[in-house]
Design a protein around this nucleic acid. Structure first.
Lengths: 138, 138, 138, 138
DNA sequence: GTGGTCTAGACCACT
DNA sequence: GTGGTCTAGACCACG
């Protein structure tokens, strides 16, 4: 298993975009290394019970973006030209989500301290979840 | 003026929803008090160069939700029945945004400390922006 | 009629890519100006008897590329940020086609003079065709 | 060595077709003479790091077309029955590439003179490249 | 086995 | 009216 995607079919963000963004972030973090193979369109579609075209759309966008390369007859691999990004570059990818959360926090009348404490809890839970991923047979 | 909306027409979240959610949060925080008037559909549409029907749709949803009331000849006002919510209730409204950000941070390979520090900066900037809002005629 | 697409459904190059490339070149040449509206997905699909999703795919790629912008509820327009390109930049877009042709010419044992003369004829014919486009009712 | 193939595995045109078309053109030009041997499937596959089945497919197509013949124990040789074609016949094989380039040039807003000058440069470079082919061990 | 393309049709969301 | 998303299924092309 080269990569585990978290797909939530009923999420507000479309499935193909969930895939695109997860691949983007995992390439940025180096958890997807250059040259690494991605699961085949059909395999990923089967695994998450979604349509192959939905997966294909995501892969095509990532190819157009230069993050993935098509090895004809052999699936998609992470493009070789991407160096692992610096912390600052990775933080830039996180910025929009944090800005949105910050604005919401203030509109809700929460103090920065309250928002930060809550975010710390979210990070702890996410970390715990990542270490103990939900399995079909734990 | 009763309320300043931050409208980003080309944001991923649709305009009417930006309005709905901002009103929800500001009522929850008490920054929009019961009985307070909202800008008229036409005024808000003009100010942000958006379609009046879009504003109208947002107001109608908020009315159906019981957060706003239509006062004949006076436009929409904040409904009287809504008490300001507790900190915990307001944090619940913030939770989804923070969870999404937390998951993204981990996928990017950032440490919780790095993410928290960045969030602190976002809060500072948002706070500064809220106190010195950009004006057309300062 | 804002733009006339030449779509050849049975060409080797896929339909969506014919659209993408024609839009790219016409924006580069300025024949599609910034802010100009493109035909709606449905209109273009009807006109050429192709599936709306095929057109939509082309438009989405051009949006991802930054050449088009979505005006929600109002179709696609040429993005404002693109200045008219220099001759050199437009020639760069033509280069791959010319390089392929040059290599083929040499493999065919044609002299550069023979190939250039033939290309001149092609340009003349293409120019004549562009000035007298085939009409349903000429 | 009887023939140098230019294989670009990540080109839009599939590998087997690159081989087929190059052989076709070089037979038409006489640069591949009747009776001449082609590199073995294995040798060609190794040299360009491509799949032997891909080479085999190209050779089989050329055999079905009557351009190549299978000599037992000797690999493929150019069929004897093909006379070198006239200039006009060879130009006919070049026509599609030139027409595509001509149409693109006009869509890009280039003048015929600009396109022709650029094509002349491409021919020069291609000629230089053919005379001084890149070698692994010069 | 791999991905690509296109179709037909449904449903949703936004303005 | 606009585009977006997804599905189901077909067929093709490549290795």
């Amino acid at each position: 298993m080269s990569i585990r995607f978290d797909i939530l079919p009923s999420d507000a963000v479309p499935i193909y975009r969930q895939i695109v963004e997860q691949v983007r972030r995992r390439i940025a973090s180096g958890s997807l290394a250059a040259g690494e193979e991605l699961p085949s369109v059909r395999a990923l579609a089967l695994e998450h019970a979604i349509n192959p075209m939905t997966v294909s759309k995501a892969y095509s966008l990532l190819e157009a973006e230069g993050l993935l390369e098509r090895r004809r007859g052999m699936g998609m691999v992470v493009a070789a030209v991407r160096p692992t990004r610096s912390v600052a570059q990775r933080q830039a990818l996180l910025e929009p989500a944090l800005q949105a959360a910050a604005q919401q926090a203030l509109e809700l009348g929460l103090t920065p301290a309250q928002a930060q404490q809550q975010f710390a809890h979210c990070l702890e839970r996410a970390l715990a979840g990542a270490e103990n991923p939900p399995e079909n047979a734990p």
